[in-house]
């Protein structure tokens, strides 16, 4: 349980670049520690996506629940938000007033964030796009999300619905 707390504290501290990078980091941590296997983790991420609320928090709650029951769910969720909340308490006012030095600070974080996003794509691509159909869904989602303003929720639900339809015709 201590290990669960420490892991999620650490993940909360590096959670730059939005929810998906946190999910990528959670994956590395959880598979590395042998807490869950890949297919179980895949289910949890898919469920985290289709339940309301920030995906990263949902994923943390679900993983905590699987690893340590209800107590694990509470501890993982609180741990992952501890550093962000403390950081915004301690530094929030300061950062809002940094001015030009704030730009330097933000720019310094961007290369690392680029790395986190790239790592997340790399980690999820082989599992998510396991056959030509799911690869097509992934590519389609990229195209629509990168070049249009379509709501990501529609992409998530739409891809689920398409795969469901396909399972009737192809299976």
């Amino acid at each position: 349980m201590i290990e669960l707390i420490l892991s999620f504290l650490k993940l909360g501290a590096v959670s730059y670049g939005g929810g998906w990078t946190i999910v990528g980091l959670i994956r590395t941590e959880v598979l590395g520690k042998g807490w869950l296997d890949e297919s179980r983790f895949r289910d949890l991420v898919a469920i985290a996506q289709v339940t309301p609320g920030p995906v990263a928090l949902n994923a943390a709650t679900l993983v905590g629940r699987e690893v340590g029951g209800y107590l694990g769910a509470v501890l993982a969720t609180l741990s992952v938000v501890t550093v962000p909340i403390l950081a915004s308490l301690a530094l929030g006012a300061l950062i809002s007033r940094l001015g030009p030095r704030g730009n330097r600070f933000r720019e310094a974080l961007r290369s690392g964030t680029f790395g986190l996003l790239a790592m997340t794509v790399w980690a999820f691509a082989p599992e998510a796009a396991r056959d030509p159909f799911t690869a097509g869904l992934a590519l389609g989602a990229f195209g629509l999300a990168a070049f249009t303003k379509v709501n990501p929720v529609l992409l998530i639900l739409g891809a689920g619905a398409l795969k469901l339809l396909a399972s009737f015709f192809l299976a």
Binding site: W20, T21, V23, G24, R42, D43, V45, A46, I47, Q49, V50, L117, T120, V121, F124, A125, E127, A128, A129, T134, A135, L137, A138, L139, G140, A141, F142, G143, A145, A146, P152, L155, I156, L157, A159, G160, A161, L162, K163, L164, A166, S167
Partner: peptide
């Protein structure tokens, strides 16, 4: 099948 489809878009959205 639905969850697999919903999961397939993850790398696309992050990319």
């Amino acid at each position: 099948a639905f969850l697999d489809g919903a999961f397939a878009v993850v790398p696309g959205l992050v990319a």
